[in-house]
Design a binder for these strands. Structure first.
Lengths: 138, 138
DNA sequence: TAGATATCTCCAGAGACTATAGGTTTGGAG
DNA sequence: CTCCAAACCTATAGTCTCTGGAGATATCTA
Protein backbone atom coordinates (compact mmCIF):
# COMPACT_ATOMS: atom_id res chain seq x y z
CA UNK A 1 0.00 0.00 0.00
CA UNK A 2 1.38 3.33 -1.14
CA UNK A 3 0.62 6.78 0.19
CA UNK A 4 -0.13 9.51 -2.30
CA UNK A 5 3.39 10.83 -1.77
CA UNK A 6 4.91 7.46 -2.61
CA UNK A 7 2.83 7.28 -5.75
CA UNK A 8 3.93 10.77 -6.63
CA UNK A 9 7.62 9.91 -6.22
CA UNK A 10 7.33 6.73 -8.26
CA UNK A 11 5.49 8.30 -11.19
CA UNK A 12 6.78 11.86 -11.15
CA UNK A 13 3.20 13.16 -10.98
CA UNK A 14 2.73 15.83 -8.32
CA UNK A 15 0.47 15.12 -5.39
CA UNK A 16 -2.19 17.74 -6.18
CA UNK A 17 -2.21 16.51 -9.75
CA UNK A 18 -2.98 12.98 -8.59
CA UNK A 19 -5.93 14.29 -6.61
CA UNK A 20 -6.97 16.27 -9.65
CA UNK A 21 -6.91 13.14 -11.82
CA UNK A 22 -9.08 11.38 -9.28
CA UNK A 23 -11.52 14.28 -9.36
CA UNK A 24 -11.56 14.16 -13.15
CA UNK A 25 -12.38 10.47 -13.04
CA UNK A 26 -9.12 9.21 -14.54
CA UNK A 27 -8.20 7.43 -11.34
CA UNK A 28 -10.85 5.58 -9.39
CA UNK A 29 -11.26 6.93 -5.88
CA UNK A 30 -8.56 5.36 -3.78
CA UNK A 31 -9.09 3.33 -0.67
CA UNK A 32 -8.54 5.26 2.52
CA UNK A 33 -6.56 4.63 5.68
CA UNK A 34 -8.27 4.85 9.07
CA UNK A 35 -7.26 8.49 9.14
CA UNK A 36 -8.81 9.14 5.72
CA UNK A 37 -5.59 9.23 3.73
CA UNK A 38 -5.46 7.70 0.27
CA UNK A 39 -3.81 4.29 -0.06
CA UNK A 40 -2.82 2.90 -3.45
CA UNK A 41 -1.88 -0.46 -4.89
CA UNK A 42 0.08 -1.70 -7.86
CA UNK A 43 -2.74 -1.31 -10.35
CA UNK A 44 -3.17 2.34 -9.37
CA UNK A 45 0.50 2.86 -10.05
CA UNK A 46 0.11 1.31 -13.48
CA UNK A 47 -2.95 3.35 -14.26
CA UNK A 48 -1.22 6.55 -13.23
CA UNK A 49 1.85 5.68 -15.31
CA UNK A 50 -0.48 5.15 -18.27
CA UNK A 51 -2.06 8.55 -17.71
CA UNK A 52 1.26 10.29 -17.33
CA UNK A 53 2.58 8.70 -20.47
CA UNK A 54 -0.50 9.72 -22.42
CA UNK A 55 -0.27 13.28 -21.08
CA UNK A 56 3.40 13.40 -22.04
CA UNK A 57 2.32 12.53 -25.54
CA UNK A 58 -0.08 15.46 -25.39
CA UNK A 59 -3.37 13.62 -25.18
CA UNK A 60 -5.99 15.55 -23.28
CA UNK A 61 -7.95 14.37 -20.30
CA UNK A 62 -11.05 13.42 -22.23
CA UNK A 63 -9.06 11.38 -24.73
CA UNK A 64 -7.34 9.59 -21.89
CA UNK A 65 -10.65 8.95 -20.19
CA UNK A 66 -11.86 7.41 -23.41
CA UNK A 67 -8.75 5.27 -23.79
CA UNK A 68 -9.12 4.00 -20.25
CA UNK A 69 -12.76 3.14 -20.86
CA UNK A 70 -11.82 1.29 -24.04
CA UNK A 71 -9.04 -0.62 -22.34
CA UNK A 72 -11.60 -2.04 -19.92
CA UNK A 73 -13.02 -4.02 -22.86
CA UNK A 74 -9.91 -5.89 -23.93
CA UNK A 75 -11.70 -8.20 -26.35
CA UNK A 76 -13.26 -5.53 -28.51
CA UNK A 77 -11.49 -4.38 -31.64
CA UNK A 78 -9.15 -1.44 -31.27
CA UNK A 79 -10.51 0.78 -34.04
CA UNK A 80 -11.44 3.56 -31.67
CA UNK A 81 -8.09 3.40 -29.93
CA UNK A 82 -6.40 3.78 -33.25
CA UNK A 83 -8.68 6.66 -34.16
CA UNK A 84 -7.89 8.60 -30.98
CA UNK A 85 -4.17 8.19 -31.49
CA UNK A 86 -4.34 9.00 -35.19
CA UNK A 87 -6.48 12.08 -34.61
CA UNK A 88 -3.98 13.25 -32.08
CA UNK A 89 -1.11 12.66 -34.43
CA UNK A 90 -2.88 14.73 -37.00
CA UNK A 91 -3.43 17.57 -34.56
CA UNK A 92 0.25 17.46 -33.59
CA UNK A 93 1.18 17.72 -37.26
CA UNK A 94 -1.19 20.65 -37.73
CA UNK A 95 0.37 22.43 -34.78
CA UNK A 96 3.84 21.86 -36.19
CA UNK A 97 2.78 23.36 -39.50
CA UNK A 98 1.34 26.44 -37.86
CA UNK A 99 4.39 26.93 -35.71
CA UNK A 100 6.68 26.61 -38.70
CA UNK A 101 4.85 29.41 -40.43
CA UNK A 102 5.18 31.52 -37.32
CA UNK A 103 8.83 30.66 -37.13
CA UNK A 104 9.39 31.87 -40.67
CA UNK A 105 7.53 35.09 -40.12
CA UNK A 106 9.33 35.82 -36.87
CA UNK A 107 12.65 34.94 -38.42
CA UNK A 108 12.03 37.36 -41.23
CA UNK A 109 11.00 40.14 -38.87
CA UNK A 110 13.84 39.63 -36.42
CA UNK A 111 16.46 39.33 -39.13
CA UNK A 112 15.80 42.95 -40.13
CA UNK A 113 16.65 44.18 -36.66
CA UNK A 114 20.14 44.57 -35.22
CA UNK A 115 18.79 45.69 -31.85
CA UNK A 116 20.75 48.90 -32.09
CA UNK A 117 18.62 51.61 -33.68
CA UNK A 118 15.73 53.79 -32.56
CA UNK A 119 12.45 52.12 -31.69
CA UNK A 120 10.59 54.33 -34.13
CA UNK A 121 12.63 52.79 -36.96
CA UNK A 122 12.60 49.24 -35.63
CA UNK A 123 11.43 46.72 -38.16
CA UNK A 124 9.92 44.55 -35.43
CA UNK A 125 7.63 47.35 -34.30
CA UNK A 126 6.91 48.44 -37.84
CA UNK A 127 5.96 44.90 -38.84
CA UNK A 128 3.60 44.58 -35.94
CA UNK A 129 2.03 47.91 -36.76
CA UNK A 130 1.67 47.27 -40.42
CA UNK A 131 0.40 43.93 -41.58
CA UNK A 132 1.32 44.94 -45.13
CA UNK A 133 4.92 44.14 -44.32
CA UNK A 134 4.06 40.46 -43.83
CA UNK A 135 4.66 37.58 -46.13
CA UNK A 136 1.86 35.16 -45.32
CA UNK A 137 -1.84 35.51 -44.74
CA UNK A 138 -2.24 35.14 -40.96
CA UNK B 1 -15.88 57.68 -33.95
CA UNK B 2 -16.30 53.93 -34.00
CA UNK B 3 -18.44 51.77 -31.78
CA UNK B 4 -16.91 48.68 -30.27
CA UNK B 5 -18.77 46.62 -32.88
CA UNK B 6 -17.27 48.66 -35.71
CA UNK B 7 -13.82 48.22 -34.25
CA UNK B 8 -14.48 44.52 -33.96
CA UNK B 9 -15.51 44.21 -37.59
CA UNK B 10 -12.53 46.17 -38.84
CA UNK B 11 -9.94 44.24 -36.89
CA UNK B 12 -11.50 40.81 -36.61
CA UNK B 13 -11.16 40.93 -32.83
CA UNK B 14 -14.33 39.90 -31.03
CA UNK B 15 -16.17 42.43 -28.95
CA UNK B 16 -15.66 40.73 -25.58
CA UNK B 17 -11.99 40.33 -26.44
CA UNK B 18 -11.65 44.05 -27.02
CA UNK B 19 -13.13 44.70 -23.59
CA UNK B 20 -10.78 42.10 -22.17
CA UNK B 21 -7.77 43.84 -23.71
CA UNK B 22 -8.89 47.10 -22.17
CA UNK B 23 -9.16 45.39 -18.80
CA UNK B 24 -5.68 43.94 -19.24
CA UNK B 25 -4.29 47.38 -19.97
CA UNK B 26 -3.38 46.79 -23.62
CA UNK B 27 -5.90 49.35 -24.80
CA UNK B 28 -6.34 52.59 -22.92
CA UNK B 29 -9.88 53.03 -21.60
CA UNK B 30 -11.96 54.35 -24.46
CA UNK B 31 -13.95 57.56 -24.44
CA UNK B 32 -17.63 57.06 -23.80
CA UNK B 33 -20.81 58.25 -25.48
CA UNK B 34 -23.48 60.04 -23.46
CA UNK B 35 -25.03 56.66 -22.87
CA UNK B 36 -21.75 55.19 -21.62
CA UNK B 37 -20.86 53.22 -24.72
CA UNK B 38 -17.24 53.03 -25.86
CA UNK B 39 -16.21 55.26 -28.77
CA UNK B 40 -12.97 54.71 -30.63
CA UNK B 41 -10.75 56.66 -32.99
CA UNK B 42 -8.16 55.84 -35.59
CA UNK B 43 -5.30 55.41 -33.15
CA UNK B 44 -7.32 52.86 -31.19
CA UNK B 45 -7.83 50.95 -34.40
CA UNK B 46 -4.11 50.97 -35.04
CA UNK B 47 -3.30 49.90 -31.53
CA UNK B 48 -5.74 47.02 -31.72
CA UNK B 49 -4.38 45.92 -35.10
CA UNK B 50 -0.93 45.90 -33.54
CA UNK B 51 -2.17 43.76 -30.67
CA UNK B 52 -3.95 41.35 -32.96
CA UNK B 53 -0.95 40.96 -35.14
CA UNK B 54 1.29 40.30 -32.17
CA UNK B 55 -1.19 37.75 -30.80
CA UNK B 56 -1.34 36.05 -34.19
CA UNK B 57 2.40 35.69 -33.97
CA UNK B 58 1.94 34.03 -30.60
CA UNK B 59 3.24 36.77 -28.31
CA UNK B 60 1.56 36.73 -24.94
CA UNK B 61 -0.23 39.60 -23.29
CA UNK B 62 2.65 40.60 -21.06
CA UNK B 63 5.08 40.67 -23.98
CA UNK B 64 2.66 42.82 -25.93
CA UNK B 65 2.21 45.13 -22.99
CA UNK B 66 5.97 45.52 -22.87
CA UNK B 67 6.21 46.19 -26.61
CA UNK B 68 3.53 48.86 -26.35
CA UNK B 69 5.33 50.49 -23.46
CA UNK B 70 8.58 50.47 -25.43
CA UNK B 71 6.95 51.89 -28.52
CA UNK B 72 5.94 54.93 -26.47
CA UNK B 73 9.62 55.85 -26.31
CA UNK B 74 10.42 56.00 -30.02
CA UNK B 75 13.86 57.53 -29.60
CA UNK B 76 15.32 54.90 -27.36
CA UNK B 77 17.29 52.04 -28.87
CA UNK B 78 15.34 48.95 -29.78
CA UNK B 79 17.46 46.33 -28.01
CA UNK B 80 14.60 45.25 -25.77
CA UNK B 81 12.20 45.02 -28.66
CA UNK B 82 14.62 42.77 -30.45
CA UNK B 83 15.09 40.68 -27.32
CA UNK B 84 11.36 40.10 -26.89
CA UNK B 85 10.94 39.03 -30.48
CA UNK B 86 14.06 36.85 -30.44
CA UNK B 87 13.08 35.17 -27.19
CA UNK B 88 9.73 34.40 -28.69
CA UNK B 89 11.30 33.01 -31.83
CA UNK B 90 13.41 30.76 -29.67
CA UNK B 91 10.39 29.52 -27.74
CA UNK B 92 8.57 28.80 -30.98
CA UNK B 93 11.56 26.77 -32.15
CA UNK B 94 11.65 24.88 -28.88
CA UNK B 95 7.98 24.04 -29.22
CA UNK B 96 8.50 22.81 -32.75
CA UNK B 97 11.30 20.54 -31.58
CA UNK B 98 9.19 19.06 -28.83
CA UNK B 99 6.25 18.51 -31.14
CA UNK B 100 8.46 16.81 -33.71
CA UNK B 101 9.59 14.33 -31.09
CA UNK B 102 5.99 13.72 -30.17
CA UNK B 103 5.13 13.29 -33.80
CA UNK B 104 7.79 10.64 -34.24
CA UNK B 105 6.73 8.76 -31.15
CA UNK B 106 3.06 8.84 -32.09
CA UNK B 107 3.88 7.86 -35.64
CA UNK B 108 5.80 4.86 -34.41
CA UNK B 109 3.04 3.81 -32.05
CA UNK B 110 0.23 4.28 -34.52
CA UNK B 111 2.08 2.55 -37.33
CA UNK B 112 2.00 -0.71 -35.36
CA UNK B 113 -1.78 -0.62 -35.22
CA UNK B 114 -4.13 -1.52 -38.05
CA UNK B 115 -7.20 -0.67 -35.97
CA UNK B 116 -8.51 -4.16 -36.41
CA UNK B 117 -7.37 -6.40 -33.58
CA UNK B 118 -8.34 -6.83 -29.94
CA UNK B 119 -7.70 -3.94 -27.58
CA UNK B 120 -5.71 -6.17 -25.25
CA UNK B 121 -3.19 -6.70 -28.05
CA UNK B 122 -3.25 -3.14 -29.34
CA UNK B 123 0.17 -1.60 -29.64
CA UNK B 124 -1.20 1.84 -28.85
CA UNK B 125 -2.53 0.69 -25.49
CA UNK B 126 0.51 -1.41 -24.81
CA UNK B 127 2.81 1.52 -25.52
CA UNK B 128 0.91 3.76 -23.19
CA UNK B 129 0.98 1.12 -20.48
CA UNK B 130 4.62 0.27 -20.86
CA UNK B 131 7.08 3.09 -21.19
CA UNK B 132 9.74 0.51 -22.03
CA UNK B 133 8.30 0.28 -25.52
CA UNK B 134 9.28 3.89 -26.19
CA UNK B 135 12.13 5.20 -28.18
CA UNK B 136 12.93 8.51 -26.56
CA UNK B 137 13.32 9.69 -23.00
CA UNK B 138 10.10 11.62 -22.30
C1' DT C 1 5.19 11.30 23.59
C1' DA C 2 6.73 15.26 21.10
C1' DG C 3 7.77 17.23 16.98
C1' DA C 4 8.43 17.02 12.10
C1' DT C 5 6.55 15.69 8.00
C1' DA C 6 2.77 14.28 5.15
C1' DT C 7 -1.82 14.37 4.24
C1' DC C 8 -6.65 16.09 4.17
C1' DT C 9 -10.36 19.52 2.06
C1' DC C 10 -11.50 23.60 -0.01
C1' DC C 11 -10.55 27.53 -2.59
C1' DA C 12 -8.06 30.71 -5.73
C1' DG C 13 -5.09 31.65 -9.55
C1' DA C 14 -2.79 31.08 -14.09
C1' DG C 15 -3.72 32.61 -19.43
C1' DA C 16 -6.56 34.23 -22.95
C1' DC C 17 -10.44 34.41 -23.79
C1' DT C 18 -15.81 33.12 -24.28
C1' DA C 19 -20.46 32.97 -22.79
C1' DT C 20 -24.38 34.12 -20.12
C1' DA C 21 -27.82 37.03 -17.64
C1' DG C 22 -30.14 41.01 -16.96
C1' DG C 23 -30.40 45.68 -17.96
C1' DT C 24 -29.61 50.17 -21.04
C1' DT C 25 -28.62 52.78 -25.37
C1' DT C 26 -28.72 53.48 -30.13
C1' DG C 27 -30.29 53.82 -34.80
C1' DG C 28 -33.51 53.16 -38.34
C1' DA C 29 -38.45 52.35 -40.02
C1' DG C 30 -43.01 53.66 -39.90
C1' DC D 1 -41.93 61.04 -32.74
C1' DT D 2 -42.31 56.49 -31.26
C1' DC D 3 -41.21 51.89 -31.24
C1' DC D 4 -38.42 47.90 -31.58
C1' DA D 5 -34.54 45.24 -32.67
C1' DA D 6 -29.90 45.30 -32.48
C1' DA D 7 -26.05 46.59 -30.18
C1' DC D 8 -24.19 47.86 -26.07
C1' DC D 9 -23.26 47.87 -20.83
C1' DT D 10 -21.54 45.39 -16.30
C1' DA D 11 -20.63 41.52 -13.65
C1' DT D 12 -19.90 36.87 -13.23
C1' DA D 13 -18.74 32.17 -14.40
C1' DG D 14 -16.80 28.77 -17.34
C1' DT D 15 -13.00 26.76 -20.33
C1' DC D 16 -8.45 23.47 -19.50
C1' DT D 17 -4.87 21.42 -16.75
C1' DC D 18 -2.96 21.90 -13.30
C1' DT D 19 -0.52 24.46 -9.09
C1' DG D 20 -0.25 26.61 -4.76
C1' DG D 21 -1.94 28.14 -0.31
C1' DA D 22 -4.56 28.01 4.27
C1' DG D 23 -5.86 25.69 8.09
C1' DA D 24 -6.76 21.32 10.09
C1' DT D 25 -5.61 16.36 10.83
C1' DA D 26 -2.73 12.06 10.45
C1' DT D 27 1.39 9.52 10.41
C1' DC D 28 6.13 8.57 11.25
C1' DT D 29 10.58 8.93 13.74
C1' DA D 30 13.46 9.77 17.66
Amino acid sequence: MLSIGDLSKRTGVKVPTIRYYEQMGLLTAAERSEGNQRRYERHDLERLAFIRHARDLGLDISAIRELIALSQHPHQPCGNVDRIASDHLKSVRDKIEKLKKLEQELERIVSHCDGDHAIEDCYVIRSLSDHGLCDGEH
